[in-house]
């Protein structure tokens, strides 16, 4: 037996996963991937995996988007200094 909330979250994953892939602009993608990470963490939490949910929040919703933004910022700095 799986509750309706769980199905809803699975559905959300099925939609946000492709959305992350189809967001072609990295900065916008940092936002979608962060949202996706939070949905995943919620799924983990609901399925009795609090340890994993915590890891997923710190990595998927914070560290990963942060690294993307840092990388984008570094690329932008380089492009600005080239001009």
């Amino acid at each position: 037996m799986i509750a309706p909330l769980q199905w809803l979250l699975f559905l959300l994953l099925a939609v946000t996963g492709p959305a992350v892939v189809l967001t072609r602009e990295p900065v916008a993608q940092a936002v979608t991937v962060s949202f996706y990470g939070i949905v995943l963490a919620l799924v983990f939490f609901l399925h009795q995996a609090p340890d994993v949910a915590l890891s997923q929040i710190v990595v998927g919703a914070v560290a990963l988007p942060l690294m993307i933004l840092l990388a984008v910022a570094k690329v932008k700095r380089k492009e600005a200094s080239r001009k």
């Binding site: 994953l13 992350v20 602009e25 990295p26 993608q29 996706y36 799924v43 993307i68």
Partner: peptide, 19 residues
């Protein structure tokens, strides 16, 4: 950069199977 994030999405599938 987009490509690397797609790789991360690919990986999330393994979390789901395990879960």
């Amino acid at each position: 950069i987009h490509l690397v994030i797609c790789l991360a999405v690919l990986q999330t599938s393994t979390y789901l199977i395990l879960l």
